[in-house]
């Protein structure tokens, strides 16, 4: 009994002293912000961020090599804490949410060909510029859905990405993920958007989509001069203008391309369905 205590105690003491000395001799300065972030992280070392542990994530945050929203178990509360530590305060401007500026799903917009490749928008985009005839339209293969850390994007039955505005935290991860750049950020109070991302001229748009912006400028002429900007045959809402100016354009739009989420709710058919499942069944 006594030998056991002494022997194990001696081993422990030896390591304690060695570690103590080593800690002094091999001391390395660490950014204090890194330590502070490590403390607020869940500390589960789950690897959900793709890095090998929470300390690596903290380091990435300080160095700016990883988005501070990259910690799935931390959620939105953690993002705020990290932002506080790093001093990148969620600036005074209004919070933004992502909007998919397209409503041309597989029913309303035409496809050039039937895509049966791997389920990824970037992969589809490589093949003759993607199946959707419209060069800016959502292909509904769910790349944005998979990068979203907050599960805020759904792909509708007819193959269109829809953002859940309540879940969206404005982390902007989906914006660069879309090869067609049809996800944009808009102020959370703005509920009216021009749901089109095609810069083609009116007749061309009409050929492939029933709900696209044809650049007719009626929203500006008959609605409100103030609320809209038209560039490259595509209208967009000037989010800094008053709501009544913007809403004046909704009624006059001939293709019903300007939509107000506040009065209409989400675009139709936002039932959770696997992308491509329609194709596979047929």
């Amino acid at each position: 009994m006594l030998t056991a205590i002494i022997a194990v105690g001696a081993v422990a003491l030896f390591f304690a002293i060695t570690l103590g000395l080593a800690a002094k001799k091999f001391h390395v300065e660490v950014d204090p912000r890194e330590l502070a972030i490590s403390e607020v992280l869940p500390g589960a070392n789950c690897g959900g961020c793709g890095l090998p542990g929470c300390s690596a994530f903290a380091k990435g945050c300080v160095e700016g090599t990883i988005e501070i929203t990259g910690c799935p178990p931390g959620g939105a509360g953690l993002v705020e804490k990290i932002a506080g530590i790093l001093g990148v305060t969620a600036d005074a401007s209004e919070a933004e949410v992502a909007v998919v500026i397209c409503q041309g799903d597989n029913v309303k917009a035409k496809n050039k060909y039937k895509y049966l490749g791997i389920e990824d928008c970037n992969a589809a985009q490589q093949i003759a510029g993607g199946p959707k005839t419209c060069p800016g339209g959502c292909m509904g293969l769910g790349t944005c859905q998979r990068v979203c850390p907050f599960d805020a994007i759904e792909i509708t039955e007819d193959g269109l990405a829809v953002i859940d505005r309540e879940k969206c935290t404005g982390c902007q991860k989906c914006v660069p993920a879309c090869p067609r750049k049809c996800i944009v950020m808009a102020p959370i109070s703005a509920t009216t958007h021009v749901m089109c991302n095609s810069n083609d001229k009116g007749p061309a748009v009409k050929k492939y989509c029933t709900v696209g912006c044809i650049g007719c400028t009626l929203c500006k002429k008959k609605g409100s001069e103030e609320g809209y900007v038209i560039e490259n045959f595509l209208a967009r809402v000037d989010y800094e203008k008053k709501a009544e100016d913007i809403n004046a354009g909704i009624e006059v739009c001939p293709t019903k391309c300007i939509r107000d989420f506040a009065t209409e709710g989400y675009p139709e058919g936002s039932k959770l369905v696997m992308p491509n499942s329609v194709d596979q069944a047929s």
Binding site: F15, T18, L19, A22, A23, K25, F26, H27, V28
Partner: peptide
């Protein structure tokens, strides 16, 4: 110990 030594 190894970690400390390697880091330095």
């Amino acid at each position: 110990l190894v970690e400390m030594v390697v880091q330095k």
